[in-house]
Amino acid sequence: MVQSVLFSKYENLNRDQLRPLLLIGDEDEMQLNKYIDKGDVFIASDAGKCVGVALLIENQAACIELKNMDILPEYQGHGVGSAFIDYLFACYSDDYKQMLVGTGDADFQNMAFYMKAGFRFSGIRKAYFESYEKPINVKGIDLQDMVLLTRELV
């Protein structure tokens, strides 16, 4: 399946058509509204269908933050997400030293995915999800803190 998926920078100025997929990666629309028009967007497509999206924002001069990433459920577990991450590393390795990603403290599946991709724990944003409009629950656990992971790009 991963062989048929192509990755590219999203050049369309209207990002609203990506909103449904971005809301899978960040379920709070108010939070998404804060950054949907910032940074760079990349898409994963299969036969013209958007099957994945990634939105990245400069965090510091030497660090790019993977603010939101999602792959459609039917494409998960087939190497598409890993290939997408590798593509993003290649896109940013000349301009940044690190890539940062944050995920919910109870989202163990996401943590494992990013750790397999070479990310390592680097911090915690305490009470991060308290600012969300409604609680986000992962496998019976309400998210509270954001776990930060980084990977060196050089």
Rank of each mutant, 00 (worst) to 15 (best):
D145R: 03
A62Y: 14
K116W: 08
L56R: 01
Y128E: 09
A117C: 15
M1L: 12
I85G: 00
Y35Q: 03
E130M: 10
A47N: 15
A54T: 07
L100D: 00
A112V: 08
G39E: 10
A117D: 00
M115Q: 14
Y10R: 08
R151D: 05
I57W: 04
K49L: 12
R120V: 11
M30H: 12
V2I: 06
L18E: 00
F129T: 03
V101R: 02
E65A: 04
D46R: 12
G123M: 10
G25A: 02
R125Y: 14
E27G: 15
E74M: 14
E29R: 13
G79I: 01
P73V: 09
R125H: 10
K67D: 01
E152A: 15
I24T: 06
Q3P: 09
V51P: 04
L23G: 04
N68C: 01
D28V: 09
I124Q: 09
M30K: 13
L32S: 05
G52V: 00
F129M: 08
V154R: 13
I36P: 03
D37P: 05
R15A: 04
A90D: 14
E58I: 12
A117Y: 01
E11G: 07
A117G: 12
G39L: 09
L143R: 03
N14W: 13
I141Q: 15
D70S: 15
I136K: 08
V147Y: 08
R15K: 15
D105G: 04
V5N: 00
D105H: 08
I136C: 10
T103K: 01
R125D: 11
Y87N: 14
A61D: 12
Y96C: 11
Y92G: 11
K49N: 14
A47L: 13
Y87K: 13
L6I: 14
E130F: 11
Q17H: 11
Q98P: 09
Q17I: 14
N33F: 11
L22V: 02
V101C: 08
N68R: 05
L72N: 00
M99K: 04
V5K: 01
M1N: 08
A62P: 03
G102D: 01
D16Y: 13
E130Q: 13
G77F: 07
Y92M: 11
L66E: 02
L55V: 05
Y128C: 08
K139D: 11
D145C: 06
I141W: 06
I57T: 04
Q17M: 12
M30R: 10
A61R: 13
I136D: 01
K134T: 15
S122F: 11
G77P: 05
M111R: 13
S4K: 13
A54L: 04
G104N: 05
N12E: 13
D105E: 10
E58Y: 08
Y128D: 05
A44D: 05
G52K: 02
M146N: 03
Y35P: 01
R15E: 02
I64N: 03
T103R: 03
Q76F: 07
N59T: 09
V53M: 04
K38D: 10
L149N: 03
Y10S: 06
A112R: 15
D105L: 06
A90T: 12
L66K: 01
F89H: 13
G52S: 01
M146I: 03
D16F: 07
V2N: 00
Q31G: 07
L100S: 02
S122C: 13
G79Q: 03
F7Y: 14
D46S: 11
F84E: 02
M146D: 06
A127T: 09
R19H: 11
F84S: 00
D70G: 11
